[in-house]
Amino acid sequence: MFMLAMLCEVLPVVAALSVVAVLAVPLWREKLPRPVRLDGSSRPDAAARWTLASGAALLVLFAVTVTVMRFHRIRLGGQDYSWWRYSIPLLAACLVLLVVAVLLVSYRRQPAEPVAPTHPRTWRSFTGTSQLWLFGSCAFALILFVAFAGSASSPDDEGRYRWLVIDTGATGGMVADFFGWAYGLPAAAAALVLLVLTVLVLHLNAVRPFFTPNSVGAEEASRSAFSYMVVCFGAGAVLLTLARALNTASSAAGVSLASEGYSFDTTLAAASPWLLGLSYLVQFFALFLLMTVVAVAVRRPQPQAATVHG
């Protein structure tokens, strides 16, 4: 158990090292999209990329802070109930995407030389199917876990479903703080809002007019790289929330009560170690995705000429 707790402490470092390792191997590095240097006065791409990367870095910092706080048994928001306790990374991600959306909308420029469209451009135009599956699966996993944990939760004195109860029958029982409906529903709602905002940003990114016929190739490459970042950012935020929820559920499920010579476990006691292992795995993946966003942003943009189609 101590080893697992230590692993939890160093997980962000492991994720950071993994991203560095990925970037160090040319074969893997080439798989990451590379931003394109565009004329700064004409496109908001660089500003949008950096906004997203800053948001991702803040989420990573948040994850590290919460991990350290948990290690020292300090709870985010104190001991009282705070509906936003688990939703906060999702709400922060929503805010970042909102800023990005405003950037994309407010940076409208009339094309220098209009490019007649040849096909419809939608939110899916610059996003791969695998990326959509990634985000969809993450959101679905979170909502599924909200339903699972919510159905296992019990209400507190004020009717908020945030406890996991050990029922010992006549001898009384005890409660542990749990990821019940009271935390799960706001998290699920925030995840849905994030999903909608992600689609909105992907749409705004796709429908922008091209600046000149010569820059179409470069702009398409830049939009693909940006879409990749947006999806990784959204999925990372969702997974970060899921990891925290799994961790809390595992802690609550692992509680046992000794009373009158008997030991009583929660109904989820058998799942506790699995939930803990899963939370570390999910957190690693979340940090990996968020750091990938930062990694794409800090890559040296390739010159525009290299991407222009003939």
């Binding site: 009339q110 094309p111 209009p114 469209p117 040849t118 096909h119 419809p120 429908v207 091209f210």
Partner: peptide
Amino acid sequence: HFRGLILSGRMGAGDRLPTVRQTARDLG
């Protein structure tokens, strides 16, 4: 422009044209 795309076979039967709004935005 669109007639040219259709006649040259770059847009086939059933292919979707960009929305009116997108065409307007792209061409200013």
